[in-house]
């Protein structure tokens, strides 16, 4: 079966608060799905559930046809090596330098030598426009820089699926462009991805389809082609600030 992501009747609540009533959608292999929704709509919860940081109350999440909600922690480790989650705020290890943050997945999961790791890390830092910052600590970086380091760390193992949680929020236009190029480059390599964002130019540049999350459901899914052609419909209303 082709690698793909599928949410089926996914439900999640925190205490009394039902965040997700009934989420069903799927992503094809190699596709980039944009996920839109207001703040607090539960976009991060969806992505975190996909790598097992949260468990749904009911429903299933299929990855390559396998229901990952049935896996235990040890089995999830294998999934997490292939599915990268780009944290909204970077989530860098603040006791380590930028270099060590990036080296962490390589040291844990590969048998590369230190000099190979060094090369890999520096190459990636270059791509992310962070070449001279390798010896700084996360606390010494700006929010946007932390985000880029976080993204670099997530994809350093060459994952098959990448979940981007607002990777362009808070960045300047130049770096937004760079992130877009990175996402497109990953896509060109055949990576499947979900791209959570409020940044419409980026979503239009990178995504194949866009899904709208509202009141605990996926209310609409539309291809980017179509969205570009006509400016009516639910997704455009959301984008233009007509609805929340």
């Amino acid at each position: 079966m082709a690698k793909e992501i599928e949410f089926k009747n996914f439900k999640k609540s925190f205490g009394q608060k039902a965040v997700h009533e009934d989420i069903s959608f799927s992503v094809e292999k190699g596709e980039c799905l944009g996920l839109l929704g207001g703040s607090g709509a539960g976009k991060s919860v969806i992505l975190k559930s996909l790598i097992g940081l949260m468990k749904p109350d009911s429903g299933s999440i299929f990855l390559e046809g396998q229901d990952i909600t049935l896996l235990n922690e040890d089995e999830m480790v294998e999934i997490r090596k292939q599915v990268a989650y780009v944290f909204q705020n970077g989530a860098l290890f603040d006791s380590m330098t930028v270099f060590d943050n990036l080296a962490y997945p390589l040291r844990e999961h590969t048998t590369l030598t230190e000099s190979e790791i060094e090369k890999r890390v520096h190459d990636l830092l270059n791509e992310f426009n962070l070449a001279t910052d390798d010896l700084l600590y996360p606390g010494e970086l700006s929010g946007g820089m932390q985000k880029r380091v976080g993204m670099a760390r997530s994809i350093i193992l060459g994952p098959e699926v990448v979940l981007y949680d607002e990777p362009t929020a808070g960045l300047d236009p130049f770096n937004i462009r760079r992130i877009q190029e990175m996402i497109l480059a990953m896509k060109a390599k055949g990576v499947t991805s979900i791209f959570v964002t409020h940044d419409m130019p980026s979503a239009f540049a990178c995504c194949d389809r866009i899904a709208l999350l509202r009141k605990g459901r996926i209310v609409h899914v539309e291809s980017v082609e179509k969205l570009k052609q006509n400016d009516t419909g639910m997704i455009n209303d959301f984008v233009n600030g007509m609805t929340a």
Binding site: I51, E73, A84, N89, A91, D94, H109, R153
Partner: peptide, 14 residues
């Protein structure tokens, strides 16, 4: 709180 514990987990480590 800063999601570093989540990050350890997300990067496939315990």
């Amino acid at each position: 709180v800063t999601e570093q514990v989540n990050a350890i987990q997300a990067l496939g480590t315990s």
